[in-house]
Design a protein around this nucleic acid. Structure first.
Lengths: 250, 250
DNA sequence: TCAAATATTCCGCTTAATGGAATATGCCTA
DNA sequence: TAGGCATATTCCATTAAGCGGAATATTTGA
């Protein structure tokens, strides 16, 4: 069975090269690229490999029956979020990022910006959104438990004592309480910036393991309308990601 | 890609059902049996599944890129020995067993007897060849280190104090030393038994992890001639198994 | 010893897979 | 910012790879 044999060869190739471009697999296996595309599409449909939205390189699904290395939470998040973020952007046009905590700030690990008709510039690689100023950071802080919140605030105080949001702790606490009550975080007003964002947590067993935001132009729509039109969909996407994570954990 | 998709489905099916017959896979996947046969042949050639020589049921290879459960040494031995035992019997006609230590006796985990033209009755399931009387037991004892040897002899003394071979420890030691020197073990003379056997160890890093024997009719060939004709092939098979095991261990 | 269950082989048919060529996309350089 | 190279993707005519029903062989169980 040629095609099965080839498919298995491709799995092995991806396993040894990941993350790898079509071209790399082509060189490794000597199979013609159209053939590889067909095989990879099948493997993707079957949940054996996946590609981040804005990255052409293939990776092994942490899932499946393949003994990858350590099933890394980031990779799993990246994987399960792909179709959900794609659907989300198709539905509401405005772009979103999937963001996790990394130390005292956040880190973007997936995004559907390039799918959006609105040309919002992509996150510079390695950019770490601020924990206190951004919608995602605030959502995370608001929904995590008191211990982790205290730890993060302590960390920021040490590394960035002059941080504007640290100057009024009472106000910060109030804001976080409000965020939790409303169910979503909003970004602070940045200077020279026409964008705004709201963000909700991805909750697994009551803990935020990540956050998804929704970007928009302040000039195009009011926060009020954005919330009433789209918050439920954003929340649904977060729940869908959480559900898939739970499923993966068995 | 239908056939790739089906192949992956079969892998999943075997994974969940193993060890499983063709019929079981057929019921689980709803694929026609000729199709399954084709797929399974491919998977077997690619080292994804295997079948013991005298068992029609398919199992997942411990090898490969599949996260089976614990990669059990027995299963690995069983798997890697299949083609080697088949070739061996094709070459020299007399049948062999692959045997490992199990406590104070040995245990047959694979055999090519049914391939042999000589109708030597198959090992009764669960039969444990004696450690002191059989060729495989003696080969094992002779090649293992002093510590394990002492442990085994101690164990036999406790469970079977009247064992005939224990009555003359000096003679036993001499016999084991000879065995190691010659490179193969021979079976003790059994009453009412026209068979005889020789056996060699499968050595990995100097330790015997298993033994392979070679059965014959005393009336058909002398031990002398059997050794001069076939010992080298038996040893080669043992080395081949050892080499495959090493490869598997990475 | 025979019947039932299961495994395997056979083979003509069809469609799914193939891959060369054309096109699109992304990326780097000047 | 254009223009050119590298890579990805689509297209489609061709064909052999895969298909599975039916016949046969083997194993099992009574």
């Amino acid at each position: 069975m040629q095609s099965l044999q080839r498919g298995l060869a491709v799995i092995k190739s991806v396993k040894s090269l990941e993350p790898c471009s079509l071209h790399q697999i082509h060189q490794d296996t000597n199979l013609p690229k159209p053939t590889l595309l067909r095989i990879l599409a099948t493997l993707e449909k079957q949940g054996i490999v996946f590609r981040p939205i804005d990255d052409k390189r293939y990776r092994l699904s942490a899932n499946s029956f393949l003994s990858s290395h350590t099933p890394d939470m980031r990779v799993v998040l990246q994987e399960v979020s792909v179709p959900i973020l794609m659907d989300l952007c198709r539905e509401i046009a405005w772009p979103s990022d999937l963001v996790v905590r990394d130390g005292n700030s956040m880190e973007v690990i997936a995004s559907n910006r390039i799918l959006s008709p609105f040309p919002i510039k992509p996150t510079p690689a390695g950019h770490h959104p601020d924990m206190l100023l951004t919608a995602v950071g605030r959502a995370y802080l608001a929904f995590t438990d008191a211990t982790e919140r205290a730890e993060i605030l302590e960390g920021i105080k040490k590394s960035e004592p002059a941080h504007p949001l640290l100057q009024n702790l009472a106000a910060l606490k109030t804001r976080l309480a409000e965020t939790k009550a409303k169910g979503y975080g909003v970004r602070s007003k940045f200077k020279y910036d026409g964008h705004a964002a709201i963000a909700v947590p991805v909750l697994v067993e009551g803990r935020p393991v990540a956050c998804i935001n929704l970007f928009y132009y302040k000039s195009a729509v009011s926060q009020e309308n954005l919330v009433s039109d789209h918050l439920s969909k954003l929340t649904a996407a977060a729940s869908a990601i959480a559900a898939r994570l739970r499923q993966r954990a068995n």
